[in-house]
Design a protein around this nucleic acid. Structure first.
Lengths: 134, 134
DNA sequence: AGTCAGGTTGACGTTTACGTCAACGTCAAC
DNA sequence: GTTGACGTTGACGTAAACGTCAACCTGACT
């Protein structure tokens, strides 16, 4: 079990490009050690990357993720960090629920329009089953 | 009941900016008549605008909306248009459902992380109710 | 010596749907 | 005759998160 990682190792493991990882560093989310110029990632760096990607999955911006990670560093007992995380998570959950409602609404609209179009087709000629995309 | 509209009238009615409406024209989604330079919108133009905004609401790109509108024009009995609409709508519905699943997944992840953080806070000191954002 | 795999730093390009000027026209009202 | 409301056309700016070069270095193998 290796104790350090190269940029492409991490990139492949998590299916992101090296460019993306460097980008996160640029934005202050990562700061791996260097061997000369080459980046060398510790397990801690790897853990941070996991947190970054998890944050992205649930819709946080890189800026928000950075704030959380920064708190995680400064805050010894992670009290502020935990509090911030709770607040932000609740905000995000609310936003996501709204987004989900919007999606449900959109699906309804689409289904209505779809049925109307199908009726129209049935009227003019029955060729619905031929409706395969090119 | 007026039979034509100015750009700001439409903009206000549908709560978009004139800039947006001109943008749609630029992209070929609208082509109002002109009185000199000034744009004059008919009921038909207004109807198209409604379709554009509905399309946007359900997540179609302007390019996709344009394709539908173009078909609507060419296609006399709207057969191709209806078929295209059905296909695209189904695609969109599928994509939206996936998106909704992603959101549900994200909410779950957030709730888990949230609970963990709350436990941590409860461990260290009870100050959860003070956790109001600034 | 050559050359390849892997790494590096800029720096500009991409996407979408507009926002935000600037500089100008025009028509009616005062 | 000038003010004001409303309109016009460019043209550049914006957001986020990278993609995509170019030009370079460096150590290992052949």
């Amino acid at each position: 079990m290796e104790s350090t990682f190269s940029i492409t190792e991490l990139a492949e493991e998590f299916e992101v490009t090296p460019r993306a990882i460097r980008f996160y560093e640029d934005k202050g989310l990562l700061s791996p050690r260097r061997n000369g110029l080459t980046r060398v990632y510790s397990h801690r760096d790897r853990a941070r990357l996991i947190l970054i990607l998890r944050g992205k999955r649930v819709g946080f911006s890189l800026a928000e993720i950075k704030e959380m990670l920064d708190l995680y560093d400064v805050d010894d007992e992670q009290i502020e960090q935990a509090r911030y995380l709770v607040i932000k998570s609740r905000e995000r959950i609310d936003a996501l629920k709204e987004q989900r409602d919007d999606i449900d609404q959109a699906i309804k609209e689409l289904e209505t329009g779809c049925e109307r179009a199908e009726d129209h087709l049935r009227d003019k000629g029955i060729a619905l089953h031929d409706a395969v995309a090119d």
